[in-house]
Structure formats: C-alpha cells, structure tokens
Design a binder for these strands. Structure first.
Lengths: 246, 246
DNA sequence: CGCGTCCCTTGATATAGGTCAAATTGAGGA
DNA sequence: TCCTCAATTTGACCTATATCAAGGGACGCG
C-alpha cells in the first residue's frame, strides 16, 4: 500500500496505456474487438498500478472504484468469515479481470492480494459502463468475462463438492498448465507462486494433504516437484486421474 | 406460489407479459428501474413457458437462446463430469435469473431442471443486450445480477471448502430461510423441494450425512423436520452453528 | 557466515464422514 | 384399499483426510 519507492525511471501512473498496443489484448477484456473499436477502448485504462508482493489490490468492504486487469504477476482472492477462517476463492494471472464481485453491492466481497510483485491496469467502472454502451462488442465482451467467471466457479464447486484429494490437486495442476499454455508459457514446467497452505485452502484440503499428494504424484512419475518448482512429466496420466476412479 | 385464481383457461405462451405489472418486479431483473424505464422493459419478455416437474429448462451444451426468470416453482442447476458424477450447483426460486453461464461460450454449461412445476419468463438474449444498451439502468441491473451470482458462488466455495457437515446444513437452511423471507413467505416454516441426495450433492455430503445432520438439529431443538417439511424453532441457535466452533 | 523464520515433508494417530445394509415411511398407481 | 417403489432414517463399520508432532531445507537479514 506504499507509494512508489523512488520512481526508478518510469512513472507507471503517468504512462500512457493503450489496450490496442498491449501484448495481452487477445487474452484480456478487449479480446475479439476490431481495430476500429479498439481505439475507443484505449480510453478505458487510465493508469497502471503496481502492487507489491503481500499488498492488497483491494479488501472486502472497500467501495468499488475500478476493475483491474493483471498485466503481470500473480494474485489470490480470498473470502473470509467473521470468525477469521479464510478460503482462497481463486488464483489470478496476467490477462485476468478482477473486481467483478463488487458490481452487485458496490463493495468488494473478497480480499485480493499479490503473491508476487504485480502490475495491474485500472479500469474505472463508470468509464467501462459508458464505453460498453457505446461499443456493443465491448459490452458483449464484459458479459462474456463475467459469465466465464461464473462457469469457473461452477468448476470449483464440482471440485470441492465431488472430488477427492488427489483428483483436486490434479485438476488444479492441469488448470494452471492450461492457463500458462494459453499465455505462451510452458504447459509442463512452471513455478507455483502460492504456498501449500494456500493451495490447500483453495482445494478444501490441509497443507499436509497437499504435500502428500504432491509426493504421491512424484512417486507415480506423473510430476517432479521441488519446493515451488513443478515439472509435469505425464500430462495424460494426470488427466487420467480425473475421470475413471469413481 | 400458486397461480392467479382463474388462469385455468389462459394459454401462457400467448399471454402478453409485462414486467411493469409483475408482482416480482422488485426481486427480479427490473428491480430498481423507474416507471419510465420499466415501460421499455416490457418488450423484454416475449413469452412465458411452463416447465413440468422433472423437465429440463436447458441442458449443458445447448446454445444460448434466452435467459430465464423464474415466475413460480423451484429448480436446480447441475454440472456434470464426463464420468457421470453430478454436482448440484444451485437451487433457484421465483425472481431468480437463470442461464448466465451460457453467455461466455454461447452454450449452456449446466443442466437446469424443475423440481416442481414451474413457470418462467423467457428473455431472448439479443433483446436483453439491445435494451440494456438503451436503458443504462437495465444494463447496470444485469451487471448486478451477474455479479451477485459470482458472490453467491464464493459463498458456496467457502461452504464447501471450509465448513463441516452440520455447519453446511445450517448455512443451507439459513440461506433458504432468508430467501423465502425476502419473497414474503415464512422464514421459519417451509417445504423443501429437493431430496436429501440433492441437498447432499449441493453441500458436498452424502445423503446419509444430510439425514443425520437433520436429526441432530432436531435433537438439539433447533428445527423440526418431517420429510420435506421444515420448521425452524431456533433461528439464532442455527446461526450460532456457523461462527464459533473453529 | 551464521541465525531465525517460514515453508515443506513425513510419520503416527484420531475422527468426521463415507459406505453398506436393513428397516420405516410416504406417495402414487392399479 | 392394497401394492410398489422411491425416499428417508438409523446402525455398524471403515477409510480418507485431519490433526499432532518432529525434523529438514531455503531464504533473508544481521
């Protein structure tokens, strides 16, 4: 939550940002827009913001000011009880759009925290509303993104409601793999940005169980893990963990 | 929950339907619109549709044609695996808007089935898109509804990820109570429309566990259950089940 | 370079909830 | 009215995962 320490060279806040020249435009909110429409969209993002590891992008209860698109870095969102229990509701990476939980009530309903230094594009919500009226395909795109979030949540329910520990972890790894792949990174080798505890919270398991499942997969030669570094050795085998075992 | 006194003869498909005169307008999509705007909205719903108990409103894979608002009756949505496992993702009652999972990919991602005879308003999606461009507060309302669905899903994740059996059931009953209450029904006495199995699927439990938890609550004088009929005797006590026990 | 802290792994044990089985109840149909 | 079938309840037992506990890296800081 601190300000920039010493605007090293570039002041991101002032930097002119344009979706039309962003390398993530095919993954992010403007995906699928035509060049003509993209121009109008460039007014959408008024500034970038840095979020340092451990800092909050927003907290539950904070009024909705903007939605955020991740430019770089990794984040988690959590929902909390009154009594302090915390449940990780999702992990987010570049191209993901955050903050949609706040549209309904005008206040954020989750905490979103950077798991490593991040850079996000700030999209003032009123601007987004106005522009999406003017640019029908932006409107449609926004609806698509929200809808996909709903579908993603259904997937998590399925996972939490009917899968057992190792299935959950396999699904988690495959999901990460697929998302890294879609962003041009290796689908089989990556670094986890979250702790075993955070993975466990997301999967509805204790950290020990997560750790044991990792070890079991390694035993079966499905993956190779060392701390946060994961290598998927047998993608098909990992997929097979999901279906058959009733 | 009953129909109007005399509709025995009316063909619902042909019936002129108007949100502005609907008794659910404050709960449903048009909530909060002004009279002036409400008029435009009346074009939104082109017909009503009956769905008999056990029939599908839509199936996973079906192309998105319309969103649906429940006029009366009770439904469930399920997501399925390849291998046939099924997870109930939600229960829906009058005023709820269904089908938003299909906006992202153009196809429904869940099965929605009537748990009793239902009546729904069909809202052709293209019409909704066009009107929400013309009527900003409808646009906003649509965003609100989608956002609230996301928040609801977060709540289910919390439930599935970090609560134990009796807490889950308590949360489930309190949620129903609150929704019935918001619709003008008794918050403390109602009939469940779903089986123990369906409750179990939704809560990530087996039907036997659901049954035992019901019995335990009854033992503690928190509720009275007889089959599908539930009486909540101690609302505060039920709420207390959620917080304290670590 | 050494220390402290956090994270991860692994083992031993406990338990919540799953599984299997049987009896009871209730609703709808013949 | 009786019959059948599905839903529910309850008991006994078992298993997956939680819990408790101990030890071993890795990393940042002094």
């Amino acid at each position: 939550m601190k300000n920039l320490p010493a605007p090293a060279v570039v002041d991101f806040g002032r930097l002119r940002v344009a979706c039309s020249s962003c390398s993530l435009r095919e993954l992010c909110l403007p995906a699928g827009l035509e060049a003509r429409e993209m121009e109008k969209i460039d007014r959408l993002v008024n500034q970038r913001r840095r979020v340092r590891k451990g800092e909050h992008l927003y907290r539950a209860g904070a009024p909705l000011a903007a939605l955020y698109a991740i430019r770089s870095g990794f984040m988690k969102s959590c929902v909390l009880y009154e009594d302090g229990r915390e449940q990780v509701a999702g992990f987010h990476m570049m191209g993901d759009l955050l903050g949609m939980d706040a549209i309904g009530g005008g206040r954020h309903m989750s905490d979103t925290v950077a798991l490593e230094d991040c850079e996000v594009c700030e999209i003032p919500f009123p601007v987004l509303q106005r522009l999406s009226r003017e640019v029908p395909s932006l409107q449609h795109q926004l609806h698509r993104v929200m809808s996909r979030e709903i579908v993603r949540d259904y997937g998590v329910m399925l996972l939490l409601g009917s899968m057992k520990a190792e299935e959950r972890l396999a699904a988690f790894l495959l999901n990460l793999s697929q998302r890294f792949s879609a962003r041009g990174y290796s689908p089989t080798e990556f670094n986890l940005r979250m702790t075993r505890q955070e993975i466990g919270s997301y999967l509805g398991l204790k950290l020990e169980t997560v750790s044991r499942s990792f070890s079991a997969f390694q035993e079966q030669k499905l993956i190779k893990v060392r701390q946060r570094h994961v290598c998927i050795l047998d993608l098909a085998g990992l997929r097979a963990m999901l279906g058959p075992p009733r």
